[in-house]
C-alpha cells in the first residue's frame, strides 16, 4: 500500500527537493532510493550500528529510525555534501591517511559522527572520541585507527 504518499519538501546538501513519500518509508530509504544518494548505508536497521547516520537540522541521527514524511522543511546533510565537488573534507583526508577504514560501509557514518563531535568538542580526548562514536560500529578496521583518524582530523582542523 503506497497510496498514502505525501509531498514533502526539504533540502539535502543545500539543494531543495520535493519527494512523494509513503509514511512507511524511512528517511534512509528516501535518501537512497528517491534522492539517489547512497553514501548512507543500511546496516542493522534498528539504531545500533550508525551506518545510516545523517545530519538533520544540525544534529546527527540514525536515518533508519526516522520517517521521510517527518522531514517537511528540514535541512539534511549527508556524507556527499561534506566537501564540495571532488575535494576531501579534512576528516575524510584524516581517515584515508590513518587507515581509518577498510571495507568502507561504516565510514560515512563515522565521518559524520566525527564532524558532529568536532563541532561540539574541537579537541576531544580519546575517551570523548570513543563516547561520541559509540553509536557507530565497524566490523573490520577496529577502533584504534579510527580514533587516531579523529585525533588527526581534530589536529588538522584546529591548526
Amino acid at each position: 500500500m503506497m497510496s498514502n504518499r505525501k509531498l514533502v519538501q526539504f533540502t539535502v546538501n543545500g539543494n531543495p527537493v520535493e519527494v512523494a513519500i509513503a509514511p512507511r518509508q524511512t528517511l534512509l530509504e528516501v535518501i537512497r532510493d528517491e534522492v539517489d544518494l547512497t553514501g548512507a548505508k543500511e546496516g542493522c536497521s534498528n539504531g545500533n550500528c550508525g551506518s545510516c547516520t545523517v545530519e538533520v537540522d544540525g544534529v546527527t541521527i540514525n536515518s533508519c529510525c526516522a520517517l521521510g514524511v517527518e522531514m517537511e522543511g528540514r535541512t539534511i546533510n549527508t556524507i556527499e555534501g561534506l566537501a564540495p565537488g571532488l575535494d576531501l573534507h579534512p576528516i575524510q583526508q584524516a581517515f584515508m591517511e590513518n587507515g581509518g577504514l577498510q571495507c568502507g560501509i561504516c565510514t560515512p557514518g563515522f565521518i559524520l559522527s566525527t564532524d558532529h563531535l568536532l563541532k561540539m568538542i574541537p579537541n576531544p580526548s580519546e575517551e570523548e572520541i570513543r563516547l561520541y562514536l559509540a553509536g557507530n560500529l565497524c566490523r573490520c578496521t577496529g577502533y584504534d585507527k579510527i580514533v587516531r583518524s579523529v585525533q588527526a582530523a581534530a589536529s588538522a582542523m584546529s591548526s
Binding site: 539504531g47 544534529v59 540514525n62 526516522a66 553509536g135
Partner: peptide
C-alpha cells in the same frame, strides 16, 4: 540512552 544519534532524536 543509546548513542549520540539516538539522544538527538
Amino acid at each position: 540512552v543509546g548513542a549520540i544519534q539516538i539522544q538527538n532524536r
